[in-house]
Simulated scan of single mutants.
Amino acid sequence: MLVCSCNFITEKEIVDVINGLLDEDCWQLIVPAKVYHAMEKRGRCCGCFPNVVDIIIRTTEAYHTRRDSTEAEIFDFMSRLKRFHEDNRRADIERRQKRHRAA
């Protein structure tokens, strides 16, 4: 499935990069910019970033399930990642509203 039409990046390419990053350090925080940097691409319109975050979450959960990580490790990491995602999404919404109010 095509995830980023600006750079023609598929979901499989993103999953492969995420798995490669997790092989290097399985507890690192992976964000869309890190994935794009590893692919030597950059976000253009960045409309795909929310979908990339969802792919990162799914892929990371699957990786740690295959790795036989303890449930406590997985839960703690995934809750921190989801909180990071929600905080950033909330900041995006607040920025949009401020811009609309000023117009």
Score class of each variant (00 low, 15 high):
D68N: 15
D54P: 00
F77I: 12
D87V: 05
D16P: 03
I74D: 06
K98D: 01
R42E: 14
E86A: 01
K82C: 11
R99M: 14
R83C: 11
E71V: 00
R58S: 11
P50I: 12
G47Y: 14
D23S: 15
V52I: 03
D92M: 04
E13A: 05
K82D: 11
W27M: 07
G20P: 05
I30M: 06
R99F: 15
C4V: 10
M78I: 10
I18E: 04
A72F: 10
I93C: 14
E86Y: 09
L29E: 14
C48V: 01
V52S: 01
K82L: 07
L22D: 01
K34Q: 10
E86M: 05
K12N: 07
A102T: 11
D25V: 01
R95Y: 14
Y63W: 11
E24W: 10
D87S: 09
C45L: 04
D76K: 11
R90S: 03
A62N: 03
I14N: 00
R90L: 07
T59N: 11
Q97T: 06
R101E: 09
V17L: 02
E13V: 02
K82M: 11
I18Y: 04
L21Q: 07
L2E: 12
L22I: 03
I9S: 12
G43Q: 03
S79Y: 03
C46W: 13
R99E: 11
E24H: 11
D87Q: 11
Q97W: 13
N19A: 13
D25Q: 07
A72G: 00
R42K: 15
R83D: 08
F84P: 12
Q28N: 11
A103I: 03
D54V: 02
I55R: 00
R66L: 02
T59P: 00
I55L: 01
A103S: 10
D68C: 10
C4W: 03
G43N: 06
L22V: 06
T70C: 04
F84T: 15
A33N: 14
M39D: 06
V3R: 07
M39H: 05
V3H: 07
E73V: 02
H85P: 00
D76I: 15
M39I: 10
M78P: 02
T60I: 10
I30S: 02
R83A: 13
N88K: 09
D16T: 10
A102Q: 13
S5A: 13
V17I: 10
R66I: 04
R58Y: 08
W27N: 13
E11C: 07
R90H: 06
V3A: 06
H64P: 00
R99C: 03
V35T: 12
F77D: 08
S69W: 01
